[in-house]
Design a protein around this nucleic acid. Structure first.
Lengths: 236, 236
DNA sequence: CGGTTTTAGTGAACGGTGTTTACAAGAGTT
DNA sequence: AACTCTTGTAAACACCGTTCACTAAAACCG
C-alpha cells in the first residue's frame, strides 16, 4: 500500500514533528519563541538540519500560518456541521461564534495569521476557507433583500469580481448559485459583516475595546443579531 | 527659566534621541529591527548604555507604543480641528478618516499598538484619546435616537460604567454632558461604531479582505455613511 | 554483490541579539 | 580637593539565523 520509500516516510514524519514543535512553541511562549534552535532542540537534532526542510526561518513561519489556517478551517467546518437545525441563519451564527471561540482560545495564532502586515499576494488557506463557508451559506437560501443601488457604483467592479470568485469557489464543490440569489447588494453586506465580525473578535483578542468589558460574549451575540438581521437572516 | 541642570538636559536629549531612533527603525525596517544595538549604533553609543534609560528591551517597546499613540492622537486632534464645518457629523467623519489615513500610512505602528496581544491592564494613551474624542463629539449635539431597551440587559452594567468614564473624561476638560444626551443605547452604538471602524481599518492594513479590493476608500466611506446614519448623524 | 550517488544530519564558524558585570571618567556637591 | 552620583564603556554569556565543509547511512544501479 504505502508506495513511499523508507526515506520518504521518515522525512514526512520529521516534517510533521517540526510543524508540531513550532506550533507548540508559538502557543506556549509566543511568536518570538518559535526559533529554529528551539524547534531543533525539541526534536533532538541541530538547527542547520532544519534547512533540509525549510529554506529559512521565514519560510517555516509561513508554513506555520498555513497549518494554523487549515486547523481553524477544520474547527469551523466541524462546528458548522454540528448545527443540525437546517436554518442557514443558525449556521451562520454557529460559524461566527466558532470563529470568535477559536480566536480567543488561540490568541497567538490569531495574531500571526490575522494581524501581521503581509504582502496581499501570498495567500494562505484563509481565503478559501472564507469563500467556502460564505459561499456555501449564501448559496443556501438567503432571502433576497438588498438592492444593488444601495452600494456605491465605484464598488461595483470589485464586488462583481468577488461575486464571480464566490461562485467559482462553491462551484468547485458542485454547488451552483443562481444569479438572482447573489446580487451585488448582498455581496456588499457579506463584506460588511466580515468587517464587523473581524472587528469585534480582534478587539476582544487584543483587549482594545475602549473600556473594560467584563462579559464580552453577550456583546458579541448582540452584534451578531444586528448583523444577521441587517443581512437578511432575521427569522430563519 | 530652564530649572533643569545641565545633566538633566543632556539626559532628556539622549532619551529623545533614543525614542526617535527606535521609531525610525520601526517605520523603516519593521518591529524586529528595533534592537537595542541598532538604536545604540544610531546614537553612537553602546547597547548597555541604553539600560541607563530603560529597564529592558520590552520596556523600551512599551515606551515606543506610548509615543506612537501620542503622535497619532496629535494627528487626529489636528484633523478634527481642521474641520471648521461646525457639524458634529462632519467632525466624526473627519476623525474616522484621519484614523484610517494614519493607519495606512503607519502600518508598522498600527500593528504594534493595535494588533499585539497584551495584558489588558497596561493602558497606553490610546484609551484616553478615544475617550477624549468620542466624549467630545458625543457631548456636542448628538441627536437622541436610541432607546436603552435596544441593548441587552447583561451589557447595562458595563455600558453604564463606560458612560461614567466618558463623562469623567470630558469633564476633566471642563465639558459637561447632560444626562439626556448620553444614554446606554447611544453608548452601545458608539462601541459598535468602533468595532466597524477598527474592523475595516485593520482588515485594510493587514490585507485581510476576502478578495482584492482595488480601491478601498469608497468602501470605507460607504461604511462610514452607514455607520453615521445608524448612530444618528445622518444629516448633520 | 560492489560502487556510486543522494540525503539527513553534524560541528564549527560568523555576525547578530538581550542582558549582566566590573570598571572608568566626568559632573555635581560639599 | 575629596567625595558621590551618573553616564558611559568593554568584556562576557547565552541565545539567535545562516553558511559551509564534512560524515554516515540510505537508495540506486550496473
Amino acid at each position: 500500500m504505502t508506495e513511499a520509500t523508507r526515506r520518504e516516510r521518515l522525512r514526512a514524519e520529521t516534517e510533521r514533528e517540526i510543524r508540531q514543535a513550532a506550533r507548540a512553541l508559538l502557543v506556549e511562549r509566543g511568536r518570538d519563541a518559535v526559533t529554529l534552535r528551539a524547534i531543533a532542540r525539541e526534536l533532538g537534532i541541530t538547527a542547520p538540519a532544519l534547512y533540509r526542510y525549510y529554506d529559512s526561518h521565514d519560510a517555516l513561519l509561513r508554513q506555520l500560518c498555513d497549518d494554523i489556517c487549515a486547523d481553524m478551517a477544520a474547527v469551523l467546518y466541524a462546528d458548522l456541521a454540528a448545527d443540525t437545525s437546517g436554518h442557514v441563519g443558525c449556521q451562520v451564527r454557529a460559524v461566527c461564534r466558532s470563529f470568535r471561540r477559536w480566536a480567543l482560545a488561540h490568541p497567538q495564532e490569531f495574531a500571526l495569521v490575522f494581524a501581521s502586515p503581509r504582502d496581499p499576494l501570498d495567500t494562505d488557506q484563509f481565503g478559501s476557507v472564507f469563500l467556502q463557508l460564505a459561499g456555501r451559506l449564501i448559496a443556501s437560501n438567503l432571502v433576497v433583500k438588498h438592492a444593488d443601488d444601495e452600494v456605491p457604483e465605484v464598488l461595483h467592479e470589485d464586488l462583481a469580481r468577488f461575486q464571480q470568485v464566490l461562485i467559482d469557489a462553491v462551484s468547485v464543490h458542485g454547488v451552483t448559485i443562481e444569479d438572482d440569489v447573489l446580487n451585488l447588494g448582498k455581496i456588499y453586506h457579506v463584506v460588511q459583516s466580515w468587517v464587523r465580525l473581524y472587528g469585534h473578535v480582534a478587539l476582544e483578542v487584543f483587549g482594545r475595546f475602549p473600556f473594560a468589558v467584563s462579559n464580552p460574549e453577550p456583546m458579541f451575540d448582540s452584534m451578531l443579531d444586528h448583523m444577521l438581521s441587517e443581512i437578511g437572516f432575521a427569522d430563519d
